[in-house]
Design a protein around this nucleic acid. Structure first.
Length: 246
DNA sequence: CCTTGATCATGC
DNA sequence: GCATGATCAAGG
């Protein structure tokens, strides 16, 4: 059996330096993925970037996805833009989540593109939202504006699956939102809809257009949309598993 | 302070 | 253009 498949001791997990080549290797199991994430806990973004041979930008303006991409590389996620979880074989989606000093999410969490056409046969359980949220490796990232990006720290990872109740809430929202899409009610498809899951524009700019269905069933051009998790939902996830003062 | 709507970068 | 990675910024 290859050496890298052996469990490591708890002591090694806490204080051991990263083995040469450890960063970026694709994990073969969920356990191995989680262990790699644990090793990153407490490290600064610039430290991880340095070990990967990457430069750390001064800030995120013009580099909005930099943190997520850094963690993808560090954990060996399959790079690319395929509409599937980051670790397809494991069925695990990786999400970095910017948090305040209190550990509360600063932003909503993008899930996936909202399908505006050819979606009539899609059910909750066959939806991309469902597939991506079945198993998520949440990695909180320190995101206080007063803390310079390079010294912001990576938090303790959380491997999460929705509870039955959480899944019901997601399913209800998904069905309500998809109903509007299928009925051509894009005017009513606004971000205020949805208890925990919402739909918002997801586009390069306001001129971006994609095809959707209008009220008369005709094809129309509209802004591309994406599914997002509300911060209140992700905050509850973190709070259930970590101790967060209220 | 929070939410909604808008936007930035990258690969194909 | 579409999918990924998200954060920005105006207004309530």
């Amino acid at each position: 059996m290859p050496e890298e498949f052996h469990p490591r001791s708890a002591a090694a997990l806490r204080v051991g330096p990263l083995k040469r080549g450890a960063l970026g290797k694709t994990p073969d199991s969920e356990w191995e993925l989680f262990e790699r994430a644990q090793i990153l806990a407490g490290k600064s973004l610039s430290a991880v970037a340095r070990q990967l041979g990457r430069r750390t930008p001064r800030n995120l303006m013009g580099h909005k996805g930099w943190v997520g991409e850094l963690l993808e590389s560090a954990l060996g996620a399959a790079a690319g833009s395929a509409p599937e979880p980051d670790f397809p074989v494991l069925g695990v989606e990786l999400k970095t989540i910017p948090v305040t000093r209190d550990g509360r999410p600063r932003e909503s969490t993008y899930v996936c593109t909202a399908p505006l056409i050819d979606n009539v046969s899609v059910r909750w359980k066959t939806s991309l939202v469902h597939r991506k949220l079945q198993r998520v490796l949440w990695i909180p990232i320190e995101a206080e504006p007063s803390v310079p990006l390079p010294v912001r720290r990576i938090g303790t990872a959380l491997l999460w699956s929705p509870s039955a109740q959480e899944e019901q809430r997601l399913k209800r929202d998904w069905e309500e939102l998809m109903e509007l899409i299928c009925m051509g009610e894009l005017d009513q498809l606004r971000a205020h809809r949805g208890d925990c899951l919402q739909i918002r524009p997801k586009a390069a700019n306001g001129q971006s257009l994609t095809t959707a269905i209008g009220q008369a069933g005709e094809r129309i051009r509209t802004l591309p949309r994406g599914f997002y998790l509300r911060p209140s939902f992700t905050e509850a996830i973190l709070r259930e598993h970590f101790l967060i003062a209220t």
